[in-house]
């Protein structure tokens, strides 16, 4: 048997309550008294509510529960906001001589909110209480997590940029062949949307490269890209698929006449001379067209090769024109005559 001065106990255990046999609270640890001020005549039922397990706050009931962890709320807790709950504390009851009970309390799993509410500092904890280390770890953990989130954002941004670059033709800013293949595969998968496919090959482009150099050729290609972008709607797909080859996909398009009109307009605009350092660069374009609704079964490779064949039909017939492919039916290839512009 050892005797301890209650004031020493209150210092060693700043979250303790000493209950007399009649239920009076005779001593409270400094931190507990800060959170919920108590008076000399307060009894256990004025100070505590046992929430889990739930039982009436009297000494006999408490004596029956000295073997397990209890959860309590402090009835006189201060600084509780309008919509806030009382702080829930863990507690263990220890029977002492002469019917007294020592209650030792501590904060629950996440003490952060209670600490903020009561503006507690390291002074409010025992020097050997690991709560402060727990809080250190929690803050350090937050720092590391924040850094991980930032890293993840940067990686996502880098991934998007890389994806964008991988799908873009550097010179013209149009999509590239790879992007077009992916786009067509996706259209084929969805099987719902009808679309028109146009394959464009520039005419007389090689002579500009040969006579005025590659810088002039690049300038012409940039102008062509500008024209194509202007002639399509925002959701249509335009790609540069080769040196002077382009493919256009018109989403949701079922009217071949619309495609013919667009092709004619594009060729008309391509034929306007493009200025390069005082030289007028003259080009034109040959176009092949096909439509997804020409086919019972959608095979994008077949559409591409049909549009390609129609394009070479345009070339063969004298360039500067468009041709609509009619897909092979029962082994017989049907194609309407190329139309000059």
């Amino acid at each position: 048997m050892i005797g301890i001065d209650p004031s020493v106990l209150a210092k060693a255990m700043p979250m303790m309550l000493l209950l007399e046999a009649d239920g009076r609270v005779s001593h409270a640890g400094a931190t507990l008294a800060r959170i919920a001020p108590m008076g000399a005549d307060d009894g256990i039922a004025d100070v505590l509510r046992f929430v889990s397990p739930n039982f009436a706050a009297d000494m006999d009931a408490l004596r029956d529960r000295t073997d397990r962890r209890l959860k309590v709320e402090l009835l006189r807790e201060t600084r509780i906001g309008a919509d806030e709950r009382a702080t829930r504390l863990r507690c263990m009851a220890f029977p002492l001589a002469e019917g007294r009970i020592l209650l030792n309390l501590s904060f629950s799993a996440d003490p952060g909110e209670a600490l903020r509410r009561h503006r507690l500092t390291a002074q409010d904890f025992s020097e050997v209480d690991p709560t402060v280390d727990l809080l250190f770890l929690k803050e350090a953990h937050d720092v590391v997590l924040t850094e991980f989130e930032r890293l993840s954002d940067r990686l996502e941004q880098a991934r998007r940029t890389a994806e964008e670059e991988a799908a873009t033709d550097k010179l013209t800013g149009l999509r590239n062949r790879r992007a077009m293949d992916v786009y067509l595969a996706r259209l084929a998968d969805s099987r719902k949307q009808p679309f028109g496919l146009m394959h464009l090959d520039l005419d007389f482009f090689k002579s500009i490269n040969d006579s005025l150099g590659h810088a002039a050729g690049d300038h012409v290609l940039e102008e062509v890209a500008r024209i194509l972008r202007a002639e399509v709607r925002r959701d249509d797909m335009v790609a540069r698929t080769g040196g002077d080859e382009f493919m256009l996909v018109f989403a949701d398009c079922t009217e071949v006449e619309i495609m013919r009109r667009i092709a004619a307009r594009i060729i008309g605009r391509l034929e306007k001379p493009i200025d390069w350092q005082g030289h007028a660069c003259r080009i034109s374009g040959s176009i092949g067209i096909t439509m997804s609704n020409f086919y019972d079964k959608l095979d994008t490779r077949r559409l591409v090769s049909d549009a390609d064949r129609a394009l070479y039909e345009s070339k063969r017939c004298g360039r500067a024109r468009h041709t609509v492919a009619v897909p092979t039916i029962a082994g017989r290839r049907v194609s309407d005559a190329p139309r000059p512009v």
Partner: peptide, 8 residues
Amino acid sequence: EFTLGGVT
């Protein structure tokens, strides 16, 4: 000042 619960 240094409060344990951090700044909110």
